[in-house]
């Protein structure tokens, strides 16, 4: 086993609600290597989002451990805030700060947490905005942006912290169909640069094209893990076949 390139190692992860009556996650073991683009798919309610949100402890797991860069972040003694700085997260509903300009949205965390100067943070932010084609919107407020623009800003806001891994929680699910493409393009270019990404999505096209691995989940457990081509062409489990037959024939 090459532990050197293993970025996240999840062992026996469980998340129960109501004293075990609801098992959102029921024992997950998984390893994410550096540079991987892991795409998590599965029917709704299968625990994909809960799993993703557990990785940076937005959901506190009931049981199990998560090793991030060799540190056990599920240990209450670990300073989770420090590790979260290295795990960028993009949400379904963007969650930009509505009272700040795009630029301020991007610079507040680097300035407050990394101790960057205003000039330094803004320079970095403008570079990133340039890359996603939104440099001219730097002084706009989030309410003045379209959904696709908001999500692109949300992605570069996370990138401003120079994370080691990016977590995407259904980044295109709240978008109008014609805006999905522009967000996926940003994600693709990010993947090309070798960013480690974990993506929960319903975009099977993206999974096929960009993913290095597909993780299929149902009822709180991982049913199948395979390379995208393998998964989409020859799914092994009954449930994966069933799921794919529902989402692919459109």
């Amino acid at each position: 086993m090459n532990d050197r390139s293993c970025l996240i190692k999840v062992t026996g992860l469980k998340k129960h609600y109501n004293k075990g009556a609801v098992k959102a996650l029921d024992g997950i073991d998984c390893e994410i290597q550096k540079g991987e683009v892991a795409v998590i798919v599965g029917p709704s309610g299968s625990g994909k989002s809960t799993f993703l949100r557990s990785l940076n402890l937005l959901e506190i797991p009931t049981e199990g451990t998560i090793l991030f860069d060799g540190t056990n972040i599920t240990d209450p003694k670990t300073n989770i805030n420090y590790h979260r700085q290295k795990m960028g997260m993009v949400f379904q509903h963007f969650n930009l700060f509505p009272n700040m300009t795009v630029l301020r949205n991007m610079t507040i965390a680097p300035m407050e947490l990394l101790g960057k100067s205003k000039e330094e943070a803004e320079k970095k932010a403008m570079e990133l905005l340039e890359r996603v084609g939104l440099a001219d919107r730097a002084q706009a407020y989030p309410s003045q942006l379209s959904g696709g623009q908001k999500q692109r800003v949300a992605i570069v806001r996370a990138l401003c912290m120079e994370p080691e891994v990016m977590l995407f929680d259904e980044p295109t699910s709240a978008l109008d169909p014609e805006m999905v493409g522009e967000v996926l393009d940003v994600m693709k270019s990010l993947a090309k640069e070798g960013m480690t990404m974990i993506v929960v999505t319903h975009e099977m096209g993206f999974a096929k094209e960009v993913g290095t691995r597909v993780i299929f989940m149902d009822e709180g457990v991982i049913i199948e893990e395979a390379e995208p081509k393998e998964f989409f062409d020859h799914p092994k489990s009954e449930r994966a076949i069933d799921f794919l037959s529902k989402v692919i024939n459109m």
Binding site: M87, M89, F97
Partner: peptide
Amino acid sequence: GQFEAGRSLGFN
């Protein structure tokens, strides 16, 4: 979501 966005950036 505003809390979560803040926390996910690393703010305590």
